[in-house]
Computed example of a mutant assay.
Amino acid sequence: MKKTLLLLCACMLIVAGPVTTATKAEAAFGKGELKVGAAGGDVYELQGRLKYLGFYTGKIDGRLGWRTHRAVRLFQYQFGLEVDGVVGSDTKRKLVEASKLWAPGVSNRIFKKGDRGGYVWELQRRLQFIGYYSGKIDGKFGWQTDRAVRDFQYRFGLKVDGRVGPKTKLKLWKATRRWSPQAGKVPQRKTKVTGLTQMKPMAQVPKHTSGLSKHDIDIIARAVHAEARGESYTGKVAVAAVILNRLESEQFPDSPSAIVYQPLAFEAVADGQINMTPNLRARKAVYDAINGWDPSGGALYYFNPVKATSRWIWGRPQIKRIGEHIFTR
């Protein structure tokens, strides 16, 4: 009798097998799909894991709105999944694998010298992708990784401390939007921007759109064409970058249309020039901005000093001037 029971238990263990990542994903998120409009604990975790990896920058509020949907699509693109914004079993499994070290309350975890595994692998690959790291991809945060991080921080105007926190993660993610886990090292041109060397995307228009729809891109391109038609190409990219910076900021609406058509936001909307058909350079400028090139230096506003009479806009902290526009925070 005892032998029979032991044999039965052994069979059950063989059938059950070890706990798989899929099972862990289901335990973390539940079995149902998460779509726009979903709310609750599963969405809190989704946002927490996405923020931990640098894909989500909004509030962790447990509501799957446009900003969370876009972060999901960005994650899906980067990890070779179907880009549909729906968090199903494949996306859950990949997200759990990519954020193994995440736990509630550690979304802003700082990685530093001595750490290993998890995000360090991705950190090394992204730094290698833009030419800052030439060492072995081993998941160990050693002196070479530390030096590469410090060099990246210096070049991109961050605090140079070798510690990879939310700001460094986000800046690195933006600078490596074309990276994917399957990607190799891709050479890129360097361009001088106010004394700093930043990575400028190559000339070709990228195939992906970082989760933005064709309508979103068309709206931004119309704004760029109308607002910066007489500006240099850098000036056009800077205007596109301002719109994308607003999209990432919690101070502004969470869709390109709402940002562009926000009352008194853009002169081109008021005078009707927003309805002009954008040219190819305006569209290309949008793609370059999507790929992480931000000549504005992170600006949220810009104005023409010859025309501007508002004391408020003149009082904003100024970052730089490109052509006829002054860019501010």
Results as ranks from 00 to 15, higher is better:
184 G>V: 08
185 K>W: 12
188 Q>D: 00
190 K>I: 12
191 T>M: 12
193 V>S: 06
196 L>P: 00
196 L>N: 12
201 P>I: 11
202 M>P: 00
204 Q>T: 11
204 Q>D: 13
205 V>L: 09
205 V>E: 10
210 S>C: 13
211 G>M: 09
211 G>N: 08
211 G>V: 11
212 L>G: 03
212 L>I: 04
213 S>W: 01
214 K>Q: 11
216 D>P: 05
216 D>R: 07
220 I>E: 01
221 A>I: 05
222 R>N: 03
225 H>Y: 15
225 H>I: 01
225 H>D: 06
226 A>R: 09
227 E>K: 06
228 A>T: 10
231 E>D: 14
232 S>I: 06
232 S>D: 08
232 S>V: 08
233 Y>I: 04
234 T>S: 06
234 T>R: 15
235 G>T: 07
242 V>M: 04
242 V>R: 02
242 V>K: 01
247 L>Y: 12
247 L>D: 02
248 E>H: 15
248 E>L: 13
249 S>A: 12
251 Q>R: 15
252 F>V: 03
257 S>R: 15
258 A>Q: 13
259 I>R: 04
260 V>M: 03
262 Q>R: 15
263 P>W: 05
264 L>S: 13
266 F>S: 00
267 E>L: 13
267 E>N: 13
267 E>I: 06
268 A>N: 06
268 A>P: 00
270 A>W: 01
271 D>Y: 07
271 D>V: 01
271 D>W: 05
272 G>T: 02
272 G>D: 07
275 N>S: 14
276 M>C: 04
276 M>K: 14
278 P>G: 07
279 N>P: 09
279 N>F: 06
